[in-house]
Design a protein around this nucleic acid. Sequence first.
DNA 1: CTTCCTGCAAACCTTTTGCATGCCT
DNA 2: AGGCATGCAAAAGGTTTGCAGGAAG
Lengths: 160, 160
Amino acid sequence: MPGIPEKKSILDDLAGRGLRLTSQRRAIVETIQDAQGHLDAATLLKLAQKREPRVNRATVYRTLDLLKRLRLIDELDLMHLEGEKHFYETRSKSGHFHLACLSCKKILEHDTPTFARLKQEVSDETGFSIDVVRLEVGGQCPACRNLSGGNSPLKDREVL
Amino acid sequence: MPGIPEKKSILDDLAGRGLRLTSQRRAIVETIQDAQGHLDAATLLKLAQKREPRVNRATVYRTLDLLKRLRLIDELDLMHLEGEKHFYETRSKSGHFHLACLSCKKILEHDTPTFARLKQEVSDETGFSIDVVRLEVGGQCPACRNLSGGNSPLKDREVL
DNA sequence: CTTCCTGCAAACCTTTTGCATGCCT
DNA sequence: AGGCATGCAAAAGGTTTGCAGGAAG
């Protein structure tokens, strides 16, 4: 029974806190939610402006900061494959982690039950209350491994 | 000359590649190796200059880049607790991961066998050849949990 | 009227780079 | 000579912020 408006969860959350649902916030939030992957701030700005042309870059950053602090989105680095920019995705997509191919720069999502167990263990063993877990793997994807000849995955242990 | 000093492993590696062991590289590498924790570039510069005053910031960055590409050091973000700067540590210290307390900003190192298993699983399940794994946990350490009163780990799910 | 939100542009901060110079083999 | 390494300072690139103006409750 698909009765729950999953898609509006973030906006609902904001509303529940008495925060304003301005047209720009709507555009920004909906853009993040509709994106299948992860967005960087610049892309988010551009896409959000398609919904609401008045969206301003500062507002994007301020909204991202808000959503981050409320734990409604996750921030990713994706191994800095494209410079220092950050990427964002809804928290509901959480649970998985990202594999970055250092050769072709593609990002692959993955999950395995061991990841969940790891989190539980860490919490149990350290006494930490865990808010965010960021797991990122850098390597070479199967396709690139084949292309670069079976024996030298990365030329002399070096990339680039 | 029997017995290669573990401590010189990075320098040996560089030498083995025909790279020059200049006084500045020495200072930078030794600083990283002697540091008990993780260093950011600015701190590394300052410490390296105590050994060799001529060390230049650009050289620090270029050396870090070199060591990174050769997989001799790991680069960490530590949940961006202190801005966007990066931290570095020798690869030999690898195997553990970092827990960042979002309240007191302390960094705790941790390891658990499940972490190693996770890496193996990821490799097996995805076919990736893994070069780097970055696992970072953000949350609240036991001490801060107690201080902030047992029931509200983070005020309204928000930090700051 | 008070609080929250936004625009604009300048400021910030860390990291990177161009180019001339210096050093090692 | 021929590379590799360095210095300096400027540039880059992404993110943050001060302050004045605006909208919402």
